[in-house]
């Protein structure tokens, strides 16, 4: 799966530049915690590793999902999902990889748009 994803990204950037690559709304953006190309390839594994040490050891490190959301939530709908231009959903729809983080995790940034009470 990783390899296929890698191919999709590289191919979309170089060989098939005319294919309609997702036009992503990267939100606030700015400096990523790591090289964007590296993140594109490895964010899945990094998040998985981070989640394990966060949940089990309480180490809240730099590859946190909440941090991704903080920077990349669209300013339009205040989320990383919702439309095919949103940061997470746009790419995952394009790559046809199921995204189920946000059934449990908040897709909205920590700082704004927090709703109280939940549900």
């Amino acid at each position: 799966m990783k390899l296929i994803l890698a191919l999709v990204f590289l191919a979309s950037g170089v060989a098939f530049a005319d294919v309609s690559v997702p036009q992503l709304d990267i939100g606030k953006g700015g400096h990523c915690v790591d090289d964007p190309k590296f993140m594109r390839l490895n964010h899945g594994d990094l998040l998985k590793h981070q989640r394990t040490i966060t949940v089990h050891q309480g180490i809240r490190g730099k590859y946190s999902l909440a941090a991704c959301v903080d920077c990349h939530a669209s300013r339009k709908n205040n989320s990383v999902i919702g439309t095919d231009r949103n940061f997470c959903q746009g790419c995952h729809v394009y790559a046809a990889v199921k995204l189920d983080c946000f059934e449990c995790h908040s897709s909205r940034p920590t700082t704004v748009g927090m709703t109280e009470g939940g549900k």
Partner: peptide, 10 residues
Amino acid sequence: VHDQKPDVPR
């Protein structure tokens, strides 16, 4: 569940 707290996923 909807509108979870960012640091309390459920």
